[in-house]
Structures are given as C-alpha cells and as structure tokens.
C-alpha cells in the first residue's frame, strides 16, 4: 500500500535575530522523512522551538522546504499543485483569538474555501456548510454567528469545520487541544476520533499532552532542535523510549499519571 503522504529528506533553514543586537542564529529543520497511511494518526511531540510547527506548515504548503520532496497520494505533482494540495491537506491552527475573522460570520467564512475550490452553486454550498456544522457538533443556526458570540470550544469546532469542509484526506493540526479546558478538550478529541472513523481521515497533530498522544495516535515522531530523534509506534515508544528527550517526556507523563493514581 502506498502511503498517502510521504516526506523524504525535507530540509528547511532560516536565519533569524533573537533580538536587535544579538548575532544571527540559524535554525535548521531536518533532514527528516516519514510517511502517513490512510486513516492513520501521527503525533509530533517535542520541546518548544524544536520545529514542530514548521513541519506542519511545510506539509500544508505554507512553507516551501529548500530540499527534499513531499509526495501526496503517491506523486510529487499532487503536492506541488496548489489546488490538489488545498483540497487534500487541511490545517487546524492552535486555538487563539485570531483564527476567526471577527468581521465575518461563520457562514461567509466557510463559503470561501468552497467558493475557491469547488464548483458548487450558492445553495449547494450553503447545504454543505450546514451539513459540516452538524458534523462537528454545531447547529445550522451557527451559520449566522460571529466570533464574539461563540465560546472557545465552539470556535475550535468552527476551525475543525473549516478544515473538514473540503472533504480532505489529511488533516494537520497544530496543538488543537492546547487552549481548551479539560471537558471541551475531551469533547474535541472524541469528535476528531469520531470523524476519523466516519471519514477515514489521516491525522497529523502536534501536542504537548502526552495523555492525548498516547490515547489517539498510532505513531509518534519526536523532534529535538529541528531533528527527528525518534520515530515509531506509540505503544513501543512509550514502553521503551530511546532518546533522552523522549525519555524525559515519557517519564514526565508517567510520573504525573502514577501520582494521580496514588493520590486517589
């Protein structure tokens, strides 16, 4: 079976100045390779500044890697083609105040991707939007809502709806659960698991929450300073971490979990 998404030796380097007087530093991402199969979930974990978000942006095409190739649905052209890429890979950003435009209603926001990527007419687009809103656990009435009328959890659902509306095959999410409170977080996790089962999505997500990583991912990629340091099945990595960074992350998680069980 050919993987739905395959990254081969992608490398991305950029120079930046941490402050005005500091010397320029160089951040190197990669070279890294991995592959993703249909319906599979990959979690990317690692410390802050280890290049996790860069990988996500590279995969969705927001950043062009300087070296290496990404093949989508078995060919490089598919990833290079903006239209195919937009329809196949969609991204969910970390929740914050600027993921939704305060001046646009949910409906007009969801019209944009459909307008640009499909040939549906207005009423067909509208029906699709209402269907997608129901799918992510909102109501068709939310079509008319603006950002400031919605709670954080609802906004996150809109973000998911925006990603799903083009019926993608792959969803890349950058810390989709980070800013949510525990109950909404579990709801969102369950929602994504449900959608994955229904639609056969492949899901790549970045998270600091080891519990969720262990719960929903099939494979784990561990990043450190732009390099891929460990890569494998979630169960194996959690059972027998090899790299010091992985060990630290996994130990921290298990310490927390065992403390939790001791105290109760």
């Amino acid at each position: 079976m050919t993987p739905i998404l395959q990254a081969e030796n992608i490398e991305y380097t950029f120079k930046f100045r941490p402050s005005f007087f500091a010397a320029k530093s160089i951040f190197e991402l990669g070279p890294l390779s991995f592959s993703l199969n249909t319906g599979e979930t990959i979690a990317i974990i690692g410390n802050n500044g280890s290049g996790k978000s860069l990988i996500a942006k590279t995969l969705v095409g927001a950043i062009q890697p300087q070296k290496g190739q990404i093949s989508l649905l078995g060919s490089n052209e598919n990833h290079a083609n903006k239209k195919t890429r937009t329809k196949t890979i969609r991204m969910i950003f970390q929740h914050n105040q600027s993921i939704m435009n305060p001046a646009l209603s949910v409906g007009s926001m969801l019209h944009l991707p459909l307008n640009l990527n499909t040939s549906l007419g207005y009423s067909a687009r509208r029906a699709k939007i209402e269907q997608t809103l129901l799918q992510v656990g909102l109501l068709p009435e939310h079509y008319h809502f603006y950002r400031d009328m919605m709670s954080d959890g609802q906004q996150q659902r809109v973000a998911i709806a925006r990603a799903l509306i083009l019926d993608p095959k792959i969803v890349v999410a950058d810390e989709p659960f980070a800013a949510l409170d525990p109950s909404v977080r579990s709801q969102t996790v369950n929602l994504i698991l449900k959608l994955q089962k229904e639609l056969g999505l492949a899901f790549i997500f970045i998270s600091h929450n080891m519990g969720i990583v262990r719960h929903i991912s099939d494979k784990v990629i561990v990043m450190d300073k732009g390099k891929l340091v460990e890569h494998g099945n979630t169960q194996e990595v959690f059972k027998d971490p090899q790299h010091p960074v992985t060990k630290k992350l996994v130990d921290a998680h298990f310490n927390l979990v065992s403390k939790h069980f001791e105290s109760t």
Partner: peptide, 22 residues
C-alpha cells in the same frame, strides 16, 4: 499577521481576495 489570513491563504485565496473578503 493574523492566523485567519494564513488560513485564507491555505484555502487558496489570492492577496486580492484576502483583502476584499477578509
């Protein structure tokens, strides 16, 4: 700078459309 502009870009919107519709 905002994220929704990036999302519009990922939707395949041109700069012109981002300006007029967002």
């Amino acid at each position: 700078q905002k994220d929704y502009v990036m999302l519009d870009k990922l939707d395949g919107a041109s700069r012109r459309r981002i300006f007029f519709s967002s």
